[in-house]
């Protein structure tokens, strides 16, 4: 199988700021990380390739600093990494971004599956995965929590919804966005990291992917930020654990550990 895992470099969660003038995210001088959901996309692509054979290609669009996320994808087991980086991409919204990514996927050719994280933690739109599917005219499955019976032609997925799960089948090629339940991203070994650090990251421009530049950047972006506002404060959550003291203490510790608080 030839699987593309899309990754994005995002500001670390605790450091997201919005420019009050432009309404855009401030990225300068902010520590960046790979979008946490994309770790699961890369892991799932690598797992599938390990089981079925093939190659995982990590794909990102962004400034040269976005190489860090691609390098991390190589640490996790991706076979190849491509960065779309060009001034023509600057200012792209989710529609223009998904257009560029789709053009890159078409340029690669022979791609069976595209896997994205369910959303990026900076914009929280969850639009790029579906946007890629729309531009490629491929079927899409969003919020996938499990993949079963995978072949190079078809797969079954457990898709998370607000009430539970849908069990769906999809013909390939397709675009799938994944949630955290789908796997546990591996911790890369030193051997793999050292090998990955010697691998090249290809840099592709708008010209490489044969993109129509009127579909890129601000000109190609129909989105206009009209207003931004902080979300309402989250309501405090109170949980009452009932039972004898030992049970309550165990249950509380279990819950805290499960949330990585303790």
């Amino acid at each position: 199988m030839r699987i593309v895992a899309c990754v994005k470099q995002v500001p670390a969660t605790t450091e997201v700021k919005i420019d009050p003038e432009t309404g855009r995210l401030v990225r300068e001088g902010v520590r960046s990380v790979m979008n946490p959901f994309d770790l699961y996309a890369v892991e799932q692509a690598v797992l599938l390739c390990e089981r079925l054979g093939g190659e995982t290609i990590a794909l990102s669009m962004g400034p040269p600093q976005a190489r860090a996320s691609l390098q991390e994808s190589l640490y996790l087991g991706a076979d190849r990494a491509i960065l779309l980086s060009d001034r023509a991409f600057a200012g792209s919204d989710t529609w223009a971004t998904s257009y560029a990514l789709a053009r890159a996927i078409e340029t690669l050719g022979g791609v069976d599956l595209v896997i994205c994280g369910k959303q990026a933690i900076d914009g929280d739109t969850a639009q790029v995965g579906p946007g890629i599917a729309a531009h490629l005219d491929w079927p899409q499955v969003t919020y996938a929590a499990a993949m079963t019976d995978c072949t190079s032609r078809r797969m079954r997925l457990k898709r998370m919804n607000e009430d539970g799960y849908d069990l769906v089948e999809v013909d390939l090629p397709a675009v799938v966005t994944v949630v955290k339940d789908i796997n546990q991203p591996r911790v890369p070994t030193l051997k793999r990291v050292l090998a990955a650090r010697k691998m090249d990251i290809d840099v592709w421009t708008a010209e490489t992917i044969g993109a129509d530049t009127s579909c890129l950047g601000l000109d190609g972006s129909p989105t206009r930020v009209v207003r931004t506002a902080p979300p309402p404060p989250r309501a405090a959550e109170t949980r009452v654990i009932q039972g004898d003291p030992e049970h309550c203490a165990r249950a509380m510790v279990h819950e805290l550990r499960a949330r990585s608080i303790a």
Binding site: P36, V187, R250, A251, V253, A258, A262
Partner: peptide
Amino acid sequence: DGAVRLPKLRGEDIGQDVES
């Protein structure tokens, strides 16, 4: 010390009936 990237060993992994 835990972290999001670090998987937590589960009781069933080591054959022990514990919640944590």
